[in-house]
């Protein structure tokens, strides 16, 4: 991670956080949760609510957050706190038609279904046959019956239907989570640049699938500027879309305007970077486009 010393403010706090055990967090699923959910959750775990999202609970010193009746019934979904940010930025509302282009295992898909209260349509697309299984299992468990599942390469989704909102939670090198795992090797610059081609193709496809004046949110869980600001700046150059500034109610950093020899432009300050020390969670990058 030393390669990012120059771009991550308070690098010591970042390094220190990366060496800690991650905190287990869960997101309440109001499609299934009963009124006494919080009381019941507190019987099983020592809980603390996230300051910025009243559906997110931190479970202190808990290594097995999935072993409870509430989880079995789909009343909550085990999800990193930062992973719930992209859907918060997307802000789906009841009645919306939403596409989740890279959906498995379904954390963000089921979060969208919950946000729209199963009123509307969520199309959850996943390219991998194997990962479709986990996507299906989570849709059923959480009662997300507004979700229709599609098994396509995201770049090949037919353009005969338009969506109000599209989420591109792109495949990435995963540095935001891997930085906590000693056995994980960080992606090389070459790997990140290779992924950037795919990420840009997915993002440009999303622009073709969203209605006029619709919203596309692009997110990754990696730090590499090649997979984040570079992709976003390329998308801005070649398409008739605008970035909208993202406001978050917790500590974060703005997107980078440059990195090494690359200039991404001042617009990147409308995008956000979340580092592990901000909310004791995984890393995340989020950009919001108006199309």
């Amino acid at each position: 991670m030393n390669k990012y010393r120059g771009i991550i403010p308070n690098f010591e706090a970042f390094q220190e956080e990366c060496q800690k055990e991650p905190i287990s967090t869960v997101r309440r699923n109001d499609i299934k949760a009963r009124k006494d959910f919080e009381e019941k959750l507190a019987e099983d775990f020592e809980i603390e609510k996230a300051s910025w999202n009243d559906k997110v609970y931190r479970l202190k010193d808990e290594k097995k957050p999935g072993k409870s009746m509430l989880h079995w019934r789909g009343e909550y979904y085990v999800q990193e706190e930062s992973a719930s940010v992209p859907v918060t930025v997307l802000n789906p509302r009841p009645g919306d038609h939403v596409l989740d282009m890279c959906a498995a295992p379904g954390g963000k898909t089921t979060q969208i279904a919950d946000r729209i209260d199963n009123k509307g349509l969520v199309v959850a697309n996943e390219v991998s046959d194997q990962r479709m299984k986990s996507l299906h299992a989570n849709i059923y468990r959480t009662g997300a019956y507004s979700v229709n599942a599609l098994n396509e390469d995201g770049r090949m989704i037919p353009e005969d239907r338009e969506f109000d909102k599209v989420l591109v939670d792109a495949p990435c090198s995963g540095e935001g989570n891997n930085c906590r795992r000693e056995d994980e090797e960080m992606a090389s610059e070459q790997e990140s640049k290779g992924l950037a081609d795919l990420q840009l193709e997915l993002l440009e496809k999303a622009f073709n699938l969203v209605k006029d004046d619709g919203v596309v949110v692009y997110s990754t869980c990696t730090f590499s500027p090649f997979e984040n600001e570079y992709v976003v700046s390329q998308a801005l150059e070649g398409n008739d879309v605008k970035l909208e500034s993202i406001d978050l109610d917790f500590q974060h950093e703005r997107g980078l305007e440059s990195y090494q020899d690359s200039e991404f432009g001042r617009e990147m300050s409308k995008t956000v970077r979340i580092y592990p020390h901000h909310i004791e969670s995984g890393g995340m990058y989020v950009a919001k486009f108006r199309c």
Binding site: L121, Y145, S146, V147, N148, L150
Partner: peptide, 16 residues
């Protein structure tokens, strides 16, 4: 399957 807006094109529509 219990769902909102079923279409044949999808692998699944809602939940069984």
């Amino acid at each position: 399957w219990y769902c909102r807006e079923p279409e044949e094109r999808y692998e699944t529509n809602g939940i069984r």
